[in-house]
Amino acid sequence: MDELIEITVTVNGTVHREQVSPRMHVADFLRRGLGLTGTHVGCEQGVCGMCTILLDGDAVKSCLMLAPQLDGREVRTVESLAEGGELAPVQRAFKEAHGLQCGFCTPGFLMTATALKESGRSLDREEIRDELSGVICRCTGYEGIVNAVDRVLNGDAVGVEDER
């Protein structure tokens, strides 16, 4: 058996002390170790972006990190977005702008968009597409996703906040 390594990691505000196998990647750790199955696993080779999480605020692919690398770090997953049964603004924007169909990729887009929003950068649609290019969607054709992120970053005449 692999020698387990003890890590202390904060996930969605909760501190966890866990024993992890070095060859388990972070997406598997979140899903199997902590039961946080909102982080989806697609390709497991860093191409599809489904498994994007926030590591100390930065969007990263959780299949490309080993679980012991989480020691001392702060992670946020898609489960951190909604509060008290209320969707977060970024989630509402995806819902309203038709930013998802099957929804499998959506956690990856939501976390990538959350990092973008928190960066405070103002981006045009071309730049938004570039920033989102690390997550693949096979349903939407991306237009709805870009619309949703555009609303989140730049607001809209029939803005998400207004409709609420």
């Binding site: 080779q45 860093g46 299949c63 990190m65 080993l66």
Partner: peptide, 22 residues
């Protein structure tokens, strides 16, 4: 790890040790 971790996963590499310099 953006190249090494997929190579480990595909078992294109089977190192005896991984030295994390992060």
């Amino acid at each position: 790890g953006q190249s090494l971790v997929p190579m480990l996963g595909m078992r294109l590499m089977r190192p005896g040790a991984v030295i994390d310099i992060n």
